[in-house]
Design a protein around this nucleic acid. Structure first.
Lengths: 154, 154
DNA sequence: CTACATTAAATGTATCTACATACATTTGCC
DNA sequence: GGCAAATGTATGTAGATACATTTAATGTAG
């Protein structure tokens, strides 16, 4: 983990600059662990994310647009992610009868099955962040949200 | 910013799960702003990152391997990033005479110039996180580092 | 010195990201 | 109804990510 030392060594012009790097680096560190896990189950991170959102719908279909709104990466291409999941028979696509522009995406039983297999290892991974305790996690959550709210991102 | 509300609404199984999502989301939010800025200068985030690392070398060349070690995204492809930067004449590649497997990468004056143009806007962007103060930023930095240190990532 | 392992970088491949564009459908206005 | 604007999705493209494999140079054991 050499950027770990790098972050320490570097003379940062400000605490904010360090924070930006730290957030990038931590997300990357978490992402690698997630990807590695997903990979074992033939999924990718973004694909897993979509399946999890769909499961949250409890059977109700969701339009692609609604999916995009809930995705972590909004600019990523939901259409093509749904393509991949459809190939694997984890989701179904159906043209919405009320508005034929829309496509209703639903998770299949196969999709639910793979998710349930992933639940335990994913939770383990997340709970594995044991260097910080619950109070610290709460504090970080509050600070991360405060951080995003603050500025004038048009 | 609909995931913002999503994060709030969702019943998280744990504070840790929320933290993971929050870190992903914040990194993404920061990354979009960075990318937008880099784009105006014909660079991408990773390319900028490499240039900044090379500038830190103060003229000393660096092998591709050394670059990878210092990159935020280690698994990204340093060779090809250096390709792009070489095309733009921002770096030079030279086979190392002592070990001809290695390639010495150096930043050019053009590379230094584009970086100096970017310094101000990048700093502005980072300093723009004004919803949290310096003490909070320090706290977050400490917690993020603690978070990464804690667990048994093999 | 040959044989084999190791190392450094490049290349290959699949997927994802970011953004532009195309196309069909729907909506709103006249 | 007819037409322009908006909407929803798909497609195109360039570049990045993640990981496996290849190529070339070096190191090392026998």
């Amino acid at each position: 983990m050499s950027l770990e030392e790098d972050i320490k060594q570097t003379r940062f012009t400000s605490e904010y600059q360090k924070l930006v790097l730290n957030v990038f680096y931590t997300a990357n560190w978490l992402g690698l662990q997630h990807n590695q896990l997903m990979r074992e189950y033939g999924l990718t991170g973004p694909q897993f994310n979509i399946l999890r959102i769909l499961r949250g719908q409890k059977g109700k279909p969701m339009s692609v647009n609604a999916l995009i709104e809930r995705m972590l990466d909004k600019s990523s291409n939901a259409s093509r992610l749904v393509d991949k999941l459809e190939e694997k028979r984890y989701v179904l696509r159906k043209v919405c009868p009320n508005d034929r522009r829309q496509v209703e995406v639903t998770i299949t039983q196969g999709g639910l099955d793979i998710l349930s297999k992933l639940d335990k290892p994913v939770t383990d991974l997340e709970e594995n962040i044991k260097g910080i305790n619950i109070e610290e996690a709460q504090l970080m959550n509050a600070l991360l949200e405060k951080m995003r709210k603050s500025n004038n991102t048009q």
